[in-house]
Simulated assay, not measured.
Amino acid sequence: MSRDNRLYAAWVIALIATLGSLYFSNILGFKPCVLCWYQRIAMYPLAVILGIGALRGDLNARVYALPLAGVGAVIALIQNLEDWGLIPVLKACTADATTVACDIPWPLWGGGALAGLNTILTIPVLSMTAFILIIGLLSWRRNRSI
């Protein structure tokens, strides 16, 4: 068994993203759209897989985690491209009685000095950032010991 801090860091990021998404939906009452659910489907297992891999020192956890992180990053990118107006919003992500359309920014940071962050640090941007960080940490070349 070998300890790798990058695996721990990837796990912490996945855990924070998982807990954050649960906080946004269950405490703040934000209802996730279809693309948000797909990102959750990719992120939630990462918190488990990377946690077990980190605690056991099993670097092979990357084999299972990288595809999930890749799929999640692509879905997050699509959602961000919609939010930025670069591609049309999917019909599945238009507003209905239970969700808000993906192109409406969530008021994450309240008013005052942090209000300007609402247009930059949206939930899809946070999700994409988490997936990209996880991919980077898991893809970083490791020195092989003899």
Results as ranks from 00 to 15, higher is better:
T99E: 05
L133P: 09
V74Q: 02
T122F: 07
P107F: 00
W106M: 11
F131A: 00
L77D: 02
A10V: 03
I135Q: 06
L77N: 03
T119L: 10
I123L: 14
A42S: 15
F131C: 07
A65K: 12
Q39T: 14
V89F: 06
K31S: 15
A92K: 15
N118P: 08
T18E: 07
L77C: 08
K91V: 12
L90V: 01
L15I: 10
A76D: 08
A61C: 14
V125D: 00
F131P: 02
A54K: 04
A47V: 10
L15P: 04
G112T: 03
I135R: 02
L137K: 01
L133W: 04
W106Q: 13
V12M: 15
I27F: 11
N60H: 14
V48Y: 07
W11V: 00
A65I: 07
L90S: 14
I75H: 00
S139R: 11
L90Y: 13
A65N: 13
R56N: 02
I104Q: 15
L15N: 03
W109Y: 09
L126T: 01
G20I: 03
L121Y: 08
L90T: 06
L137Y: 01
P45S: 10
S127L: 07
I104Y: 02
A47T: 13
A115I: 06
Y38Q: 09
D103M: 07
C93K: 12
S139M: 14
T98F: 09
T94I: 03
T122H: 08
Y44Q: 10
I41N: 04
F24T: 10
C102Y: 00
T122Q: 11
K31T: 14
C93T: 04
I52P: 01
M43K: 03
V100H: 13
T94C: 01
W106K: 12
V63T: 15
A115W: 04
I75Y: 01
T122G: 04
Q39R: 09
P107T: 04
I52Y: 10
G116S: 13
L133T: 05
L121A: 15
T94V: 10
G111Q: 09
P45I: 14
G53Y: 03
L22F: 04
L50M: 08
N118R: 11
G53T: 10
A14K: 09
W84M: 14
G20A: 11
L19C: 10
W11I: 00
Q39A: 03
I87L: 12
Q39F: 00
